[in-house]
Computed example of a mutant assay.
Amino acid sequence: MPAALADVLSSIERLWPAAGAEAWDSVGLVTGDPRATVQRVLLTVDAVGETVDEALEWGADLIIAHHPLLLRGVTTVAEDRYKGSILARLIRADCALVAAHTNADVVERGTSAVLAQRIGLVDARPIVPSAGPGAAEGHGLGRVGRLAQPTTLGSLARQLAEVLPPTATGVRVAGGFDDPVETVAVCGGAGDSLLGDPAVRAADAYITADLRHHPASESREQSRLGGGPALLDVSHWASEWLWLDAAAAQLADAHPDLELRVSELRTDPWDFQVVQ
């Protein structure tokens, strides 16, 4: 039996409260009528042409995307522009779009928590706990914990490559292949803003995405002076894609009659890499 979009939105708010989003973020309903009904829901990291094609060909009534389509200022929704084209197609097809971004990062089963669980971290806790009125215990950015069995940096990198979906850039590592690793910090998505956090500095290794040259270089140089983590840089898309299965399971519990599909289309922007 179809569910009211308004009811699904209520479940989304309960699972990933908008109040948990960063101030700069844009989450929630992007397009769609809350009075409409929903039967089929596609979950994806990015609302791009290919994933919208997949949703509409399947007959989806709702797309839940991790990344907001309208995060930055938009002055036109003309259909010769990427975002305008996406919105026009969704509106014509009566397919709603919801963004669950940093509000889905900080929860107990959020992007970083799922990544931490998949690599076997135990006693994981947020790197930066959520603060302020109404902040829930255990919520926050990133996760840091310890491996049940200590390993080496090379073995951790190989494990990570097996856990994540394949991408052109794979797993880049800064550190010695045989260096011992027990405490690991993770942050799904772009995480170089956390490189200076004490919990990250105290870890043996830090897994995140989109590490830029200067922050990564400065972190490694500081490590030579006073300790710090080895770095494992992965695809932004891949680091967050793992969360989609957990999100679908939570929605299925709330709405057993919904048909849910996790998109397996790779929306990582890179197609191939030439290694010198």
Rank of each mutant, 00 (worst) to 15 (best):
V52I: 13
V48K: 14
E54Y: 05
L90Q: 06
P68H: 06
L43V: 06
A47V: 06
V114M: 03
R118S: 14
V48C: 14
S130Y: 03
L62G: 01
D33Q: 10
S112V: 06
R109N: 14
R118V: 09
L42A: 07
D46P: 00
D61Y: 00
V77W: 13
I127S: 02
L42V: 09
R125C: 09
V38I: 08
A124N: 00
V107R: 13
D123T: 07
V38N: 06
G32C: 08
R35C: 10
E79V: 15
E54T: 02
L56F: 02
R125M: 12
V122Q: 12
R40D: 05
R125Q: 15
A78Y: 06
S112I: 07
T75H: 15
E57F: 05
A96E: 03
K83G: 01
G28E: 02
V45W: 11
R81Y: 05
T51R: 02
G110S: 07
R89K: 08
I119T: 12
S85H: 15
L42D: 00
H66L: 00
C95K: 05
G84K: 03
R109W: 10
I86S: 06
L115K: 12
R81N: 13
A36Y: 02
I119R: 11
G49L: 12
A65L: 04
A78G: 05
I127E: 06
V74G: 03
P68L: 00
G110L: 05
L56P: 01
R125T: 14
V114S: 05
A104E: 02
T102Y: 06
T102F: 08
S85D: 15
H66Q: 03
A88M: 06
A116M: 04
S112A: 08
I127Y: 01
